[in-house]
């Protein structure tokens, strides 16, 4: 979720872009066929919801995506740079980049510029050789390979939920249920999380988007929406 914490500048008009934070809830998990990424859709400037249907899942290569949290400007810039490198890698080499390649690039950028960035990233991707993988890069720029990762301000409220309900090697249906359930809890308790739930499922078949609306009790419209 993009909200402004520093908010308005001295003139009372201009927003300090450095303080536009994506403080929301997002997560990525591994499951039996690949990975699933999920996020809420709320962007706020103070109390105002600037965008209630934001897309916070960012594609950096065919089946390598990321969830961004922290400064919107910083995380977008970092994702753009990685996207460029992966694109180049893809055309320069026969074999496309792996999730590891992407994670390595993200980490290099986040660590080297740690003093100037406010960026927490979750990288999730699928490739035939390594299957689905999830990496988390928290604020300092360290790199963690995890079965699943949660991030954003809303994640505070779902550590317990995830810990109790997490299972390794879930089916797609179970995985979607887990992610959706966790995000619903975060949206319920976190003031800066809300709106729709967006998912991306990454498998051998490619990337498939899902959308779940609050007015349909987060049940639909579902796949491909």
């Amino acid at each position: 979720m993009v909200r402004s914490s520093g908010m308005l500048g001295e003139d009372g008009i201009h927003v300090d872009m450095n303080h536009l934070k994506t403080g929301e809830v997002n997560m990525a998990i591994t499951f039996c066929d690949g990975v699933i990424l999920g996020a809420d859709s709320r962007t706020t400037t103070g109390a105002y919801i600037a965008n209630r249907v934001t897309d916070k899942l960012t594609q950096v290569h065919d089946t390598i995506w990321c969830c961004r949290s922290g400064s919107a400007a910083d995380t977008q810039a970092v994702a753009d740079i990685v996207s460029y490198h992966l694109g180049l890698y893809g055309v320069m080499h026969e074999e496309g980049p792996t999730t590891q390649t992407a994670a390595g690039l993200f980490q290099e950028l986040c660590y080297d510029n740690k003093d100037r960035l406010s960026a927490g990233m979750i990288i999730a991707g699928y490739d035939q050789r390594n299957g689905g993988n999830v990496y988390s890069i928290p604020l300092g720029g360290s790199l963690h390979k995890q079965p699943y990762a949660i991030g954003g301000s809303g994640s505070t409220y779902i550590y317990g939920y995830c810990d109790s309900y997490w299972k390794e090697g879930m089916s797609e249906e179970e995985g979607i249920g887990f992610v959706k359930g966790a995000l619903r809890e975060a949206i319920k308790w976190d003031g800066s999380s809300g709106g729709v739930i967006r998912l991306v499922v990454l498998t051998n078949k490619g990337a498939v988007r899902h959308l779940y609306l609050p007015d349909q009790g987060y049940k639909g419209p579902g796949k491909g929406a």
């Binding site: 039996c32 590891q100 689905g132 990496y135 963690h144």
Partner: peptide, 26 residues
């Protein structure tokens, strides 16, 4: 073999990464 990213912490799921394709070029 499965290789770690230099400097990575953690190993991901204990059951291994899902969705690998048998015989994918390695």
């Amino acid at each position: 073999a499965e290789t770690k990213v230099d400097g990575q912490v953690g190993i991901g799921p204990a059951v291994g990464s899902g969705g690998k394709v048998d015989g994918a070029k390695k």
